[in-house]
């Protein structure tokens, strides 16, 4: 899959919560989107900071030739992206990273898949869930947030598969963290997880106890996104590896967690 630098136009920009917004993007020149795997990410150039900002791909619509990015306002760069008026251009490097496993040997009709998202980490699971459903897998989404006001993409996920919700304060769904959810009482063939590191570590520990395959998507600080600068390394059983090029998705067995 060739990487490319492409100018995109912001077709729509919408805040979903006070801190998170969704951008819908189309290539300016109408060129078709490259093949994108769920869990891959892009690097977006902004004016307010030097380095590009890595953003995971939330959804791909090849028919409309659109890409959607769910962005959390985490500083100058992301704030700039969320503040741009519709019609603005963004230069984007894509597609980057390896993505979640969805090959036929892993995903079969009836495979029981649990997709666990925390906060903005729910983003890549939407596209993943759609692809897994298309392959006949039995998908369950589990998403967690601090409060109901910070929950993301629940309606969209419900159109694909059942969604379980946890909130830290109990304002929606079950009270507690994602690992406290009753969905874990069922058995799964594989768990896919993306969210804050402490949450992913808790999910990884639970998956180990339940002896279920588990993949997590890391978000170490990156510079190049191409595996050249060696800044975003994670300690793995193979030593330090770049999250941007050998991840961002890792099987928990590869990690030293």
């Amino acid at each position: 899959m060739k990487k490319q630098l492409t100018d995109f136009i912001i077709k729509t920009s919408e805040m979903l919560t006070p801190s998170c917004g969704m951008l819908t993007l189309m290539p300016v020149d109408g060129s078709p989107l490259p093949e994108i795997k769920p869990g891959q990410f892009v690097e977006v150039a902004v004016n307010s900071v030097m380095l590009r900002r890595p953003i995971s791909i939330c959804d791909v619509d090849y028919e409309a030739n659109e890409l959607r990015l769910l962005i959390r306002n985490a500083g100058k760069g992301t704030s700039e992206m969320l503040g741009l008026p519709e019609g603005s251009k963004l230069n984007i490097l894509l597609p980057l990273g390896n993505g979640f496993t969805f090959s036929d040997d892993v995903v079969q009709p009836g495979s029981r898949m649990l997709l666990v998202g925390g906060g903005v980490g729910t983003a890549p699971l939407l596209y993943l869930g759609r692809i897994l459903r298309r392959k006949g897998a039995e998908v369950t989404f589990l998403t967690g947030a601090k409060t109901s006001a910070e929950l993301l993409l629940v309606d969209e996920m419900e159109r694909i598969a059942p969604v379980a919700v946890t909130t830290d304060d109990g304002s929606e769904g079950e009270k507690g963290f994602v690992v406290d959810s009753t969905v874990w009482q069922k058995d799964y063939d594989r768990v896919y997880c993306c969210g804050p590191a402490p949450m992913m570590k808790a999910v990884a520990a639970l998956a180990r106890r339940k002896e279920v395959e588990c993949e997590v998507s890391l978000e170490n600080m990156m510079a190049c996104g191409l595996g050249a600068c060696l800044c975003c390394v994670e300690k793995t059983v193979k030593g330090n590896v770049c999250v941007c090029s050998e991840g961002p998705v890792f099987n928990i067995n590869e990690l030293t967690w």
Binding site: M50, L51, N220, M222, L230, C231, C232, V233, N240
Partner: peptide, 23 residues
């Protein structure tokens, strides 16, 4: 060489600090 531990990079105004350590 495995290089230094993460974090190895910090963005600064119009620049960045790195401490990759010759991995």
């Amino acid at each position: 060489r495995e290089g230094n531990d993460y974090p190895r990079m910090a963005e600064t105004p119009m620049g960045m600090l790195n401490a990759v350590g010759l991995q």
